[in-house]
Amino acid sequence: MAAAAHEIGTSSRATGEVVLEARNLRKNFGGIKAVDDVSFELRNGEILGMVGDNGAGKSTLIKIITGAYQKDSGEILLGGQPTEINSTGHARELGLETVYQSSGLVEVMDAPANLFLGREKLKEGWLGKYFGMIDKRFMRRETDNLLKTLNITVRNLAAPVQTLSGGQQQSVAVGRAAYWRGKIIILDEPANNIGVDQQRAVLELVRQIRDQHDIPFIMISHNMEHIFQVADRIIVMRNGKKVGDKRVADTSRNEVVGLITGALA
């Protein structure tokens, strides 16, 4: 059953070329197989949902891919090249942008400062070269453009982001990942802790970024509604193993829930 699903998942109907491939990943924590021989691939322009109960291994899997944990064995291929991901910083350099469910933004700083956090733009010419002066006007203009193209309305760009709603803050975080031309954007429970209307806006944003920029997403969520709203394909994790890999068009909520709980395994 799982094997069949896998074949469907990788059928030629997937949109672009393979950007990320995980082969036989394993990770043990003191005898517990947190990730047990998991393989999957991610294609350009695809939104891949990842579901599973608490402790099913999805967050460990994601942490391996974003460099927070080191795998015990297996292989990760980026754009066809075998790649060792040493740290979260390294993952970012490789074009893997992660959006966390919280603590991704510095709340007391304004949106432009957050968009360029850790990657501030220096002024052209001697001011930037000799005095290390950052180009606030440029950062502000870029932020303004980005938010406009993504239809995020922020009342006042110069205000600390803590004056924004939770949904707007999360939109800025997702927008940031898109702005930096992430090759792959990973969303960890992106619509938790925010209002229902705003959840929809954030998911809409995800779809829009995919459509505009052809960037693939991996999205972890507990919320089946969210997954079915935006994902093209769903990976189901259970007890550290991948038990399902289905195109959304070919499956149903009931089937996915069955895979999660083990009723269908």
């Binding site: 979260t88 910083g89 970012r92 603590s103 933004l105 510095v106 709340e107 400062a113 956090l117 850790g118």
Partner: peptide
């Protein structure tokens, strides 16, 4: 400096 004081975790995740 401001980022570290404002949210150390976010600053670290942003590569600072």
């Amino acid at each position: 400096i401001i980022a570290v004081g404002g949210n150390e975790e976010a600053a670290r995740l942003a590569g600072i």
